[in-house]
Design a protein around this nucleic acid. Structure first.
Lengths: 198, 198
DNA sequence: GTCGTAGCCTAACGAACGTTAGGTAGGAGA
DNA sequence: TCTCCTACCTAACGTTCGTTAGGCTACGAC
């Protein structure tokens, strides 16, 4: 979307996230990342202070992408929509963020535990906050009678894990476009929370 | 369930699957596994031929557990149930397998890609076959009019990723029992595929 | 032309990795 | 008592890991 300065640093993060997605962070060496850029491992350290630093940059960027997109999807200025429509919008947005950069999203979803100390806790806190958005929306919808009453935490986790799973299997050249997937997932999510809604 | 001979080999697999679940296969060293058993890394090789061999044993056992349970859930002798009931039974069974040994299930779901060559392909084939069971059931249910018509592959993937996610967060001492989780997930799954079903 | 700087190189560091070799202690069965 | 066998040990192997140090080249700005 946004036009980025074509920095070397960013190129490193891009190949790293592709490798982290398909092999995992721990199974990807610094020399693997360098080889994908056709340079030597040591040369990376002109652009990067550590391997974990690259992971952190990727995870941080992904977290912001999800947060910003969710805020845009939910805080629409045009008055309060009902829970069903807001849930559909949130699901669509989540799918769109994943499809826009599946490597980024996959690393965020699956590799955050290789961060250490404060960074790990910071990301966990942001994940929790994001999950709370889902849970809150589900809770509101139940209170308003839009959703079937059930355990909001379970329902939110059910939806979020299903959504995050997309980051693992989505391929841009696949059978279904991101929009079609978003349509299907929004329908499935809404129906999962709705009963006799005609 | 079954009473096992208390073999050292099995103890190794148990601590290994716990470590693989929480740190990942690649980030767990042979010496880490040994330390959890209060022995030296080299001593493991009296019971095991390689680190990957341990992963294979875990993944293989998990695959069999899922396959056997699904077969028992679907091939009930008491005549053909409708797709809704069979889906609910399959979901419950899947949850039960995960809850019976979350470490085993989590390694199966998340760490199979660290297998090499034939083993990796063999597990992928079995995963595909298992997924095909879900997809087939969804397809049948749509044909019979029990389920809302949608893309069966997308719906099956949606459900399976939501289900497999449980392996990542379930804790036996958690707020909800495995049965309660199974109830909720079966409801969510059936509703996701059903519309105006009263 | 010279200066800065961006980008890469070779060489090497200590640590950790998976794994092998060969040996020891102790209990079970003859 | 001798003999296996299970379970563990120490020591070491070659490799790979993340990372640092120091140097070279090309190019744009002044």
């Amino acid at each position: 979307m946004a036009i980025e300065a074509p920095s070397r640093r960013r190129a490193i993060e891009d190949v790293a996230s592709a490798l982290f997605r398909e092999r995992g962070y721990a199974a990807t060496s610094v020399r693997d990342i360098a080889r994908a850029l056709d340079i030597r491992g040591a040369s990376l350290y002109a652009h990067v202070t550590s391997k974990e630093d690259v992971l952190w940059a990727i995870v941080e960027r992904a977290a912001s992408a999800f947060e910003d997109a969710a805020a845009r999807a939910l805080d629409t200025g045009d008055g309060p929509a009902d829970a069903t429509n807001r849930l559909a919008a949130l699901v669509r947005t989540h799918v769109a963020v994943i499809a826009a950069d599946p490597e980024l999203a996959s690393v965020f979803v699956n590799e955050w535990r290789h961060l250490s100390g404060e960074r790990r806790e910071a990301i966990l806190a942001r994940r929790d906050a994001y999950e709370a958005r889902f849970r809150g929306l589900v809770t509101e919808g139940m209170a308003a009678g839009d959703f079937t009453s059930t355990d909001p935490a379970v329902a939110a986790t059910f939806l979020l894990t299903a959504l995050n799973g997309i980051a693992g299997w989505y391929r841009p050249e696949g059978r279904l476009s991101a929009n079609r997937i978003a349509d299907h997932y929004a329908d499935l999510a809404v129906r999962a929370l709705t009963e006799d809604h005609r």
